[in-house]
Write a protein that binds this DNA or RNA. Structure first.
Length: 812
RNA sequence: GCCGGUGUGAUGGAAUUGGUAGACGUAGUGGACUCAAAAUCCACCGGUGGCGACACCGUGCCGGUUCGAGUCCGGCCACCGGCACCA
């Protein structure tokens, strides 16, 4: 055979195959197929001006490998890509450089696209979506209208999170430790009229249906935590002047221990009592309310060691279980946004109430025995350890039994009822910025809010002169009087458009549906496409989206399911998550640290295949990993070895005897590891195999199997070698079936066993594969090294682990 | 404080789920090739003792279960992430 001795010239090979794949559309998903479908999804990127960094290819390569493997297994695969392009950085860049955000977006998408193609991902490029395309956001607006028509979108004036730098409201999910999730600027409270989505209506289902999906456990727990379900009871107390005060408690069993009440400073009853002239210490109360209002949530939380509050003078509460008169306080440790904004305080059995009671000299009455002295610390155990005392008819019961008993009693007397509360709050959905989807609503002084008729969608984002956010808290769109002034869709009179836009999370809440049928202009996707492709089989994305995008899109999906648009209850069947890529030194990559690795540089130096391999070999996929320029070389060396082996292998279509066992074990291992996302060990297994091929020599048949296995990981070199070995007529390497695994080839005729004496490794022996236990023990005892330790001892026991080891237990 | 995760050589990380700890890769050391360097190839590469065969110790710490523990149980420590006055 002719000896090629060509260099592994990745710089020419990679673009060559990228073009061939694209021309042949080998990665296109087929809509009308009888094949089993597989829908693999990665989170679409925000096309920033910086382009891709090496963090992006980690999830992309992983799902690309999974999807390529699925294609080889005969699935009709949908593996799409798109761009989540509305958002503040683009808008800010546009403001700074006086370029229209649409132009900025277009350029960034072009750059991202070429980078993604450079890495050889098998995306279906005919299904690319862009959330800023009116053909796309028409349907984002359409979904909003459906939410509105079903009572799930409403406008309300309430205190909201306001980012002082973005000049824009934020959802609760976007506030992290009191600062803006995006820019890190402090968030303050501001009273504003906002569009809200009733995600709380889905709270229970968002928890329950987690049981039906295959999400990694930490995603499920984080979502459950965020939704924050707690069960208890609502109990109606009364004030001395006869007003009902409803409180929520998770411990109705401790009702007899309620020695005072606390209202949130913003509670409506406080103002009412003030009106009626019942309060004798109005100045103190007002001063406290004012101070509380001025504090941000962060400040409130920071001050949580020291309890503050004011006792209401002139009004008291009455404990409904024993008629006792108890004082009422206002304090900011009670939140107006959770429960009823009012609590009964049981200092003996709640840490916060205890701290408050100590400071304000409130009575502490023990109603659950079994702990230490409640005058010294609250006893909060909620299990069977505590027995009810000082509680009339509850005395003697455990806490566990007392809760249903008192709840039943309350319900019978009409004083209270069982109740479930959630920490989750409704989703603040409007933003005072330009670069987002316009909210298709019109305000008419006569008719109120009216939805835009659906046939007028999309409501286009108008061109404006300035995208600058305004200090008065209005969207830049509000300055566009031509656009703002319109007619009421109902009465035809003069009306004004909503000038706030949607948050960035809107477009991404349903994008996975659009990929199923991206060019449809009659519906967000056709019924046939939705029925065939739903649900997403495997969705990989970042942990940082667990309580943002992932939660929001599950909510939207459930709504769309309820109104008959989508066929499944849940959008994603399986959810996995990748660890971050950290810069050298173990710190997060960032421009300011100057440790950002640009994939273009790595591709130029080593090629895309090496980058793909390295990013998968770097460590446990779910764990954070530190980038190392040096370690990249190892993957390049591996590909060089593969190349050289292909050039020097024996011209024999058969697999060689010498490599058979290793080859077939490797075929199995790589397949299993891809399914389990253990890409690092899959690659290690192929490296070992290649080392063996180098030692034993290999045939074309051996190489054929190796190249096929390698093709999901390093698709370009696989194609090139496939063609070089003369298999080009059989189609692309990436279209071949996964190599056949023959278990019988992995069974050796002679087994290597470890011999232990009293649990310590003492020797290795070879035995025939069919040797029985007695023969194995005899062989072990016959070994010279073993005899050194068994000499003069009695064998009391022997343990044989088939195919692994034999342990001899000896005693003098 | 509550919930989750992690802890293994110089280093990134493996270990068939209770069965030879350190696969695979980096870095390092020695050697071959070269005028030289790069590349490549070969050998070594947890610690201590020994010329050596070999022995003992070793998976954050202390204890336990087991013929056998990185893996299981009990009790700690450290770091990372999430939630946090949510009644």
């Amino acid at each position: 055979m002719e000896v090629w001795k060509l260099k592994y010239d990745f710089a020419n090979i990679e673009p060559k195959w990228q073009k061939k794949w694209e021309d042949a559309k080998v990665y296109a998903a087929h809509d009308n197929s009888d094949k089993k479908k597989f829908y693999g999804l990665v989170e679409f990127p925000y096309p920033s001006g910086q382009g891709l960094h090496v963090g992006h290819p980690r999830p992309y390569t992983a799902m690309d490998i999974v999807c390529r493997k699925k294609r080889m297994d005969g699935y009709n695969v949908l593996f799409p890509m798109g761009f989540d392009a509305f958002g503040l950085p683009t808008e800010n860049y546009a403001i700074k450089n006086h370029i229209h955000p649409a132009k900025v977006t277009h350029d960034n998408i072009q750059n991202f696209t070429s980078q993604l193609k450079m890495l050889g991902f098998g995306f279906d490029w005919d299904r690319v979506i862009d959330t800023t395309d009116p053909k796309y956001y028409k349907w984002t607006q359409w979904i909003f209208l459906q939410l509105y028509k079903h009572g799930l979108a409403y406008k309300a004036t309430m205190p909201v999170n306001w980012c002082t730098s973005c000049k824009c409201v934020l959802a609760n999910e976007e506030v992290v430790d009191g600062v803006c999730e995006r820019c890190g600027a402090p968030v303050i409270r501001k009273e504003k009229s906002q569009w809200m989505l009733k995600i709380t209506e889905y709270a229970q289902r968002l928890i329950d249906d987690l049981d039906e999906v295959d999400f990694i456990e930490r995603v499920k727990t984080q979502q459950r935590n965020w939704i924050g379900r707690s069960t208890g009871a609502e109990v109606t107390f009364h004030s001395t002047n006869g007003d009902p005060i409803v409180v929520f408690t998770t411990r109705p069993d401790t009702l007899f221990g309620a020695t005072y009440m606390v209202l949130a400073p913003e509670h409506a009853l406080v103002a009412e009592w003030k009106e009626k002239g019942l309060l004798k210490n109005v100045e103190d109360v007002e001063a406290y309310q004012k101070a509380a209002a001025a504090k941000s949530d962060l400040e409130r939380a920071e001050l949580n060691k020291e309890k503050t509050g004011v006792k209401l003078d002139g009004v008291a509460g009455i404990n409904p279980v024993n008629g006792k008169e108890i004082p009422i306080f206002i304090s900011d440790y009670v939140l107006s946004t959770y429960g009823t904004g009012a609590i009964m305080a049981v200092p003996a059995h709640d840490d916060r109430d205890w701290a408050f009671a100590k400071k304000f000299g409130c009575e502490i009455i023990e109603v659950v025995s079994g702990g230490e002295d409640v005058q010294q610390a609250a006893f909060t155990a909620k299990d069977e350890t505590g027995i009810m005392v000082n509680s009339d008819f509850l005395n003697g019961l455990t806490v566990k039994d007392a809760i249903p008993a008192i709840t039943k009693w309350l319900e019978e007397k009409g004083i209270g009822e069982a109740k479930v509360n959630y920490k989750l709050r409704d989703w603040v959905f409007s933003r005072q910025r330009y670069w987002g989807e316009p909210i298709p609503m019109v305000w008419c002084d006569k008719c109120g809010w009216e939805p835009l008729p659906e046939d007028q969608l999309p409501l286009l984002l108008p061109d404006v002169d300035s995208y600058e956010p305004t200090d008065d808290g209005e969207s830049p769109l509000s300055k566009m009087t031509d656009w703002v002034n319109t007619t009421c869709p109902k009465c035809g009179g003069p009306a004004r458009r909503e000038t706030d836009t949607m948050p960035q999370w809107a477009g991404s809440s349903w994008y996975y549906l659009r990929y199923m049928d991206p060019h449809n202009d009659k519906a967000l996707a056709s019924k046939e496409a939705l029925n065939y492709w739903s649900p997403v089989d495997w969705y990989n994305g970042g942990m940082e989206h667990t309580t943002l995008h992932l939660l929001y899109s599950r909510f939207w999906h459930k709504f769309l399911y309820d109104i008959g648009v989508v066929p499944t209850k849940e959008p994603y069947q399986k959810r996995t998550s990748h660890g971050m890529i950290l810069g050298e030194g173990g710190e997060k990559m960032s421009k300011s640290r100057g440790n950002v690795v640009n994939p273009n540089d790595i591709v130029a130096q080593y090629g895309a295949d090496t980058l793909r391999l390295y990013i998968m070999f770097i460590g446990d996929f779910e764990q954070a990993a530190v980038w190392s320029d040096n370690a990249v070389k190892g993957c390049k060396r591996f590909l060089d070895k593969v190349w050289n082996l292909a050039e020097s292998c024996k011209d024999d279509e058969n697999q060689s005897e010498a490599n058979a066992a290793s080859l077939h074990k490797c075929i199995k291992k790589v397949a299993d590891d891809i399914e389990g996302m253990k890409f690092n060990t899959a690659i290690a297994a192929m490296m070992s195999l290649v080392n063996e091929f180098g030692q034993n020599g290999c045939t074309k048949g051996d190489m054929k199997a190796l190249i096929t296995m390698l093709s999901p990981f390093a698709p370009h070199i696989a194609e090139e070698l496939w063609e070089m070995l003369g298999y080009g007529a059989q189609g692309f390497a990436c279209q071949q079936p996964w190599p056949e695994y023959d278990e019988s080839k992995t069974v050796a005729s002679v087994l290597n066993l470890v011999v232990q004496v009293n649990g310590k490794v003492r020797a290795n022996i070879q035995v025939p594969a069919d040797a029985d236990n007695d023969a194995i023990v005899a062989a072990a005892q016959a070994d010279e090294k073993v005899q050194k330790f068994t000499q003069g001892m009695n064998l009391v026991k022997s343990i044989v682990v088939p195919g692994r080891l034999v342990n001899l237990i000896v005693k003098p």
